[in-house]
Amino acid sequence: MSLLAVNNLAIATGGHDLVADLSFAIEPGQRLGLIGESGSGKSLTAMAISGLLPPAIVPRGSVTLDGVEVIGAPERKLNKLRGAASAVVFQEPLTALDPLMKLGRQLAEPLRRRFRREGRDLAGIEAETIALLERVSLPQPQRIANAYPYEVSGGQRQRVAIAMALACRPKLLIADEPTTALDVTTQAEILALLDSLVRDLGMALLFISHDLPVVSTIVDQVLVLRQGRMVETGPVKSVLGTPTQQYTQSLVAAARAFDTALGAR
């Protein structure tokens, strides 16, 4: 059975469909890239999977995550699913972290829930916090744990945010444009980190991005979204290498033109 199965998902607000007829599945350990321009419904889809759409935005169809139907499920059931089945890394690490809470304490929050879930001794949380910070290659984890978000760099904040998602030990990691707010060098480091973590921990990955080169380095399968509709889907090599749809072709051409322009300088 698939870890995540999305069937005929439609997301509507005020009678207007923002996403429609979207179907895809992610098997355990599989990596899928969700590609599309801004406003194509990528992040909405991610929120629908976590059951966190704003009240005015209503989903239809079916989203089954780890065997549980998410759409229409009561909050209590969803809250148990969140963290255990899925966790999200967001685009902007500064706003995704509480500015008034030390990073170590923020990281300890999801850890505490996992320890409870697994029936482990809560005394081990502090050591596990430091271990997680080391796991995401942060130097001086003790210092970072005692720092507030504004006291560390953007790349370090994103590493902490990734550590927080890992702390849940989810079966599916949803990364919503995790490198967009970072500079190119940091971007490459974060991608390499995500790649190794997902491989080592055997998690499935839903990677959302508008950046084709970034997506192609980390996922096996891609799904191209345009105005809330699926344009094309398949293995990265075939979809981005030999796109059959005009929209995908134009995306690839644009990325290529951009690369050439950069190379020419």
Binding site: S50, G83, V88, P99, A165
Partner: peptide
């Protein structure tokens, strides 16, 4: 704020 959504995605009540 985003960190509230972030906290909810990891299952904070």
């Amino acid at each position: 704020m985003d960190f509230i959504t972030a906290a909810r995605t990891s299952g904070t009540s």
